[in-house]
Design a binder for these strands. Sequence first.
DNA 1: GGCGCAGTTCGACGTTCATAGAACACCGAA
DNA 2: TTCGGTGTTCTATGAACGTCGAACTGCGCC
Lengths: 118, 118
Amino acid sequence: MKHPQVHPDTDQLKLTEVMAALSDPIRVGLVRLLSDDVERGWGELRAPVAKSTLSHHLKVLRAAGLTRTREEGTRCFVRLRRDDIATRFPHLLDAVLEAADNEDVGHQVGLVSDSVTA
Amino acid sequence: MKHPQVHPDTDQLKLTEVMAALSDPIRVGLVRLLSDDVERGWGELRAPVAKSTLSHHLKVLRAAGLTRTREEGTRCFVRLRRDDIATRFPHLLDAVLEAADNEDVGHQVGLVSDSVTA
DNA sequence: GGCGCAGTTCGACGTTCATAGAACACCGAA
DNA sequence: TTCGGTGTTCTATGAACGTCGAACTGCGCC
């Protein structure tokens, strides 16, 4: 981890960055996955991309202020910054999540515990 | 104009495309400008980019299904597809517009009739 | 017909992005 | 201290993007 991860303050979130972060299906899938406000470990996340690519996507989400990452030993945990986003952009995340559900955006993203055979 | 402009059907709008379209300040500015549901002519639009670039941005908005373009002789008019978007993605556009207002995203975009000295 | 205007398309350039693999840094355990 | 697991960073590559100027198309008008 080396460099401490940066998390923008709530009042620094930029709309265009948030929109850009949510313009990739995999990232939308990750946000959907985290929308139950449960903190998840890296290892729980299942996505059809290489490890480094997943790390990249999580970094984008973090930089956009959508998620917060916590380190514990060698592992990392992610959580959605729901309240912060709602404070800055009321109803935005809810609207996006609803739309993403209807369209099933990012369905390829899931938890390892989910039955992969589905 | 040559090739007839394509306007995706309401039920074909893709969330990620909409998000991508709204991840550029100029395009957000255009959407804000059109948010009063008034049809505007190309000539009314003022943006700090070249003519061809503006054409490109309007094409992106059109392709994402956010706007509808009508031709009349040699001129074109744009209108926001508010109802269509609201049908497909309820509350999404409202949330984005509210956030964009708070942040004044795309303030560089305006109408020629607006006092430029401001 | 010929001119000019309005808007699009094309070609080009530099930037950013998504992606992957390899190398690295870090921590915990043996 | 050495090893393996975990996550980041580096480097590279191909694609997409924003931008512009120039060339093109189509329409209206003189």
